[in-house]
């Protein structure tokens, strides 16, 4: 994965996402304190930090799963105070979860097709009647889903119930479901957790491909610093709910606060 062989997606100057002064607490627990950073359109931005630093909480604020006590999220130039997960999805934000959140009783294909629900035009009644337009549309969604399955090399598991797949493949299916929405911003919460080296390599390549081929902006949480330094354009470091560093991978790596945070913790 040398930089020369892998030209990155063009990164625009304007931020697609800006997090401004976000604070979030659960009762007495301060998960996130006054955090601001910006993600430019087309970049891969990694959020790192020790366990409990508030990374997942921040991701949950960005797509409206949690509502912060303070601050706001500006996405695509629009500041929204009360974003809901569904509204975030409609505006092009897709995500995966730290603990795989698939629809366990459904097949891989159905999970991916469910990810396309925002693109479905024909109402259920027309689909039940089997009108020509509805059938053609269903073919289109199926074709798109098949493209994504092929892209992530999981066509063979198309009809397998996701609950029966090994963990590494479940992570991939969850990514497939997120991609099915054709998002502009992809939030990935530890997509490589619990994977071996080879699986991590595969997943890193998928993320780079998504970023380059579709121009999708990616915000990624990852503990493996090697991977982070390799694939990110931009790294934000959190510790105890606060931001301690923000910049290019090389800058962040040499930042004394970051070194202290990582040596001072279990990592």
């Amino acid at each position: 994965m040398s930089a020369a062989a892998y030209p990155p997606a063009p990164v625009a100057a304007a931020p697609l996402l800006a997090v401004e002064g976000i604070s979030l607490s659960f009762g007495g627990v301060k998960a996130v304190t006054d955090i601001s950073f910006a993600v430019r359109s087309g970049e891969i931005c990694s959020l790192i930090g020790p366990n409990g630093a508030g990374k997942s909480s921040l991701l949950n604020v960005i797509n409206g799963v949690y509502r912060p006590q303070q601050g706001r999220v500006v996405y695509d130039g629009v500041a929204s105070m009360r974003i809901t997960p569904r509204r975030a999805a409609r505006r092009g934000i897709a995500r995966t979860f730290q603990n795989v959140a698939l629809f366990k009783g459904m097949s891989v294909l159905d999970n991916v097709l469910a990810g396309r629900n925002l693109h479905v035009r024909a109402g259920w009644f027309r689909q039940v009647l089997g009108l020509r337009a509805a059938r053609d549309e269903a073919d289109g969604h199926r074709r798109k889903a098949e493209e994504i399955l092929a892209f992530l090399h999981i066509q063979a598991y198309r009809d397998t119930p996701v609950g029966k797949l090994p963990y590494g493949l479940q992570k991939r299916v969850e990514l497939a479901r997120a991609l099915a929405a054709e998002p502009r911003l992809l939030l990935l919460d530890e997509p490589m957790a619990g994977m071996n080296l080879e699986e991590k390599m595969d997943m890193s390549c998928f993320i780079l491909d998504i970023n380059r081929d579709f121009g999708t902006t990616v915000v990624l949480i990852e503990h493996d610093l090697g991977v982070v330094m390799d694939i990110s354009d931009h790294v934000v470091v959190l510790d105890y709910g606060r931001k301690i560093a923000d910049g290019a991978p090389a800058e962040v790596r040499d930042n004394p606060d970051v070194i202290a945070a990582y040596i001072g913790s279990a990592h």
């Binding site: 569904r86 975030a88 629809f103 469910a114 259920w124 039940v128 997120a178 929405a181």
Partner: peptide, 26 residues
């Protein structure tokens, strides 16, 4: 036909995990 339509798929999604269903826009 209903359970094989997008509505049926959305039902099962809500059944299996409603937070994830909301996050993908259902």
């Amino acid at each position: 036909r209903i359970v094989r339509s997008d509505l049926g798929r959305n039902w099962m999604a809500v059944r299996d995990m409603d937070t994830a269903a909301a996050v993908i826009g259902i």
